[in-house]
Design a protein around this nucleic acid. Structure first.
Lengths: 250, 250
DNA sequence: CGCTACGTTGAGAACAATCAACCCCGGTGG
DNA sequence: CCACCGGGGTTGATTGTTCTCAACGTAGCG
């Protein structure tokens, strides 16, 4: 399937933007308020529009691999992306999941420090790094906003270190579900039956667990009545207070 | 002991700077080339000098705690600092160790998202956040440099997630020693008998291990001939190539 | 000269990993 | 139309790495 399946990407409100379509595709961007571009005025937005192209990915499609020249930065406009690092023997650590409005490529190095691939059908904006950096020089306000985002990413990363280093499987899963719910709410989607579009294996690689342990832990949370597993990768947070307690280690 | 023990802080080349001493204490800063301040011209440096104060900490002294209003940012000029987060029941995750030249407080939020304390005798520069932010508005070049640093921190954090989520105790210790060595070299100190100023417990909380496992793993690496434990918390990397292989999971 | 903090080592327990079987579902092709 | 196949998910049995609990050694400091 190469055609973009709009039904699979619930959050996509508008027709898919085409590469360089119209005078200012960014103006109509459905996720603009969520991301870097929110800070831009008309003139800046026009400049962004001039350098941006859009692309779509099918489930599993790689976006880039660790070590490649980092020629582009991206903004997810719909769908879901996984970001990960690998060890030589294939062990994998997800470093993040990205959804509509999330920015990708903040590490402004010469090569990508991680790999990225689509989880489901996904639409992105792509910015050439060189050109974007030139814009940043011109508009410090954009750089300021980027610093704010990097700063927030850093806080998230530290929270994830706490999870990976010190939480039990049960606490990890609870934290994970609550994080997905919180982020869904932030971008205006439903947070309670929370959408979990990634596989058990992907979740395991995010939480430092195996597929089997993820599956078993879901089962036990279900038996406890803390959650309910629904159709289509949705999870109902039946007892959110309990989940919060579990996530905090109480 | 409240007096600053200069012998314990090998990297301190100059007399300890005093609060607001001289017209421009930053000009004489021994670690200026390592940090944000490297990018500054004379005028900017003078402005930094005007808002900076210095302070010293004894081993174990807290710098700030998670949740406190984030009124200050810091720059370590000598010594070593640990940064960590806690769970309600006392489980602790170090999110980083800071040495001379390292910047602290990049998360520009209203409150600190983590706690920080001195490991050994430590000297720091302290910047009021409000005033520094005003300087950032005025000098985009400084903000640019800060973004670069945040971006680098992000890459380091992702590497640490890989370590915490997917590496064995042995691989974690090897990675840790090599990281300390690399960073010591970068700031111009000796990297081979590498200085390890933090306790086994601190190391464990950084690597997601217990004191005992850290100790046992050191012992096994010593038995293998990969390392030698020396006096004064120094570790000789007897077989660095082997350590590199272990750290990569080979 | 003890006290305390830190480090090391040992024995046993526990949590998660591994190995393996099975189910379910969707897609494919006979 | 249905049998086959493959991927993802669940569950079970067993293993193993790391944790826990405990004892002991050592060094620094009052």
């Amino acid at each position: 399937m190469t055609r973009f399946d709009i039904d699979k990407v619930g959050q996509l409100q508008n027709p898919v933007p085409r590469p360089n379509a119209g005078s200012s595709p960014c103006r109509a961007c459905p996720v603009r308020h969520l991301t870097v571009c929110a800070a831009l005025d008309e003139a800046e937005l026009a400049q962004m529009s001039a350098i941006v192209t859009t692309l779509e990915l099918s489930p599993g499609d790689p976006l880039f691999d660790e070590g490649e020249p980092a020629d582009h930065l991206f903004n997810v406009t719909a769908g879901a992306v996984k970001v990960y690092k690998l060890l030589a023997d294939g062990r994998r650590q997800m470093t993040g999941f990205l959804f509509a409005g999330d920015f990708l490529g903040l590490a402004l190095e010469e090569t990508y420090a991680y790999s990225a691939a689509a989880i489901i059908h996904t639409a992105l904006c792509r910015f050439p790094r060189r050109k974007l950096e030139r814009l940043l020089d011109k508009y410090p306000k954009m750089e300021h906003r980027l610093l704010g985002m990097a700063s927030h990413e850093l806080a998230v990363a530290q929270e994830q270190m706490l999870l990976l280093g010190r939480k039990t499987a049960r606490e990890k899963i609870a934290s994970f579900l609550l994080m997905l719910a919180r982020r869904a709410t932030q971008r205006g989607q439903v947070g309670d039956p929370v959408s979990v579009p990634m596989s058990r294996n992907d979740i395991g690689d995010f939480l430092g667990l195996t597929t089997e342990t993820v599956s078993r832990t879901f089962t036990r949370l279900k038996q406890d009545g803390s959650i309910h597993l629904l159709q289509g990768g949705k999870v109902a947070l039946s007892d959110r207070a309990r989940l919060e307690d579990i996530a905090e280690g109480l």
